[in-house]
Nucleic acid binder design. Sequence first.
DNA 1: GTTTGAGTGTTGACACTGTCAACATACACT
DNA 2: AGTGTATGTTGACAGTGTCAACACTCAAAC
Lengths: 206, 206
Amino acid sequence: MSSQDGRYHHGDLRAALLTEAAAMIAEGGAASLTLRGIARRLGVSRAAPYRHFPDKSALLVGVASAGFARLGERLQSIEAGAPRSSVERFRRMGEEYVRFALENPAHYRLMYGKEALTREDIPELHASADALLAQLVDVIKAQQRSGGIKRQDPRTQAYIAWSTVHGLASLLIEGQIQPAGEVDDLIRKTTRTLLDGMRVRRRPAP
Amino acid sequence: MSSQDGRYHHGDLRAALLTEAAAMIAEGGAASLTLRGIARRLGVSRAAPYRHFPDKSALLVGVASAGFARLGERLQSIEAGAPRSSVERFRRMGEEYVRFALENPAHYRLMYGKEALTREDIPELHASADALLAQLVDVIKAQQRSGGIKRQDPRTQAYIAWSTVHGLASLLIEGQIQPAGEVDDLIRKTTRTLLDGMRVRRRPAP
DNA sequence: GTTTGAGTGTTGACACTGTCAACATACACT
DNA sequence: AGTGTATGTTGACAGTGTCAACACTCAAAC
């Protein structure tokens, strides 16, 4: 019985592990997260986490998965709010996506970098990402109906849009991009360019 | 004297470390690369690498940097070859970028994921990436002059293009994107959409 | 041609990590 | 009250990055 608060059972260690892990990642990056360290911070023994996650990778998958859920909710909230035109709403979602990444860089990195995850099958993580994709596909279909963007395979278009915002987010986070002016400016221009490419063309290019 | 070949001095251990590290990363991912492991494979003692790199992170930076150089050369070769129109050449560079990533997934991941790199300052790595960016800016300026794409801040446009191809490459590598048809198809469509967005618009969108 | 010093490679050691087996405790249900 | 299951603990092991102390090699200075 070495728990800080004198209890033998923690109460809800599983949830505590997830939130504490997320906190540690936010503080010092995923590399700073160690199973023993998190156990120490929670006043619990080294092996306790193993009662809730088969290994470290599984815990990380859990944290990453929660990140996808949060990101999804955030995009949903943009979709709910109603800016002017409907294409503009789509563009705003892209902006919000990048902002989320910039606000939670280490978490975002974990979500996409399987580097730290040694397990072969990460179905849970892929499911979370797929949910996000489905959300995006729905919005694109709606935009196609309203004539905002080209009528092509919406899934392909979703991949393209996702690639654009993810790429921008990723390069910004890693510090590869150091924009001359405001970051928001770059984000806006990027989403505009993307949208221009997805829009219905008046005349085919020569 | 425990060297496999009986020599006390290796000859060019620094270069051997870099190439062997790249090979190990290609085989089993960056996570599988361990300083002791690479030393073992080179028939050298654990501490030998420390005579050439201050720590593991420095070795990884070296490998990643070499990756940027190789990628740069590859894009250069596309620029040298002369496809039909000049905009098409630009697009082809984007395709080639993604292909490079798909052919060297683990290496590419290392180049962009600072996850594994604990050091604060990675000037060498940023310099390598900046060289790539400069290359891209040059091409964009040329395309602007020939009227292929909009006349805007070329650096910003380079960021946008880079984001698009990097995002696509990244999502493909991580398995987040599972295209319905051929991968090449998706790559082509993505670069086309990007280019459409960067092209000079005949009429402003309503 | 010997000496010497820098460059390079080796061994021993330390703290740290993820993980497992064996054991202990607390709670829920009969 | 009794018992089984979920949860938490301790001890142990192999593996890791890293450092200090030592060994070897070779080229330049005498």
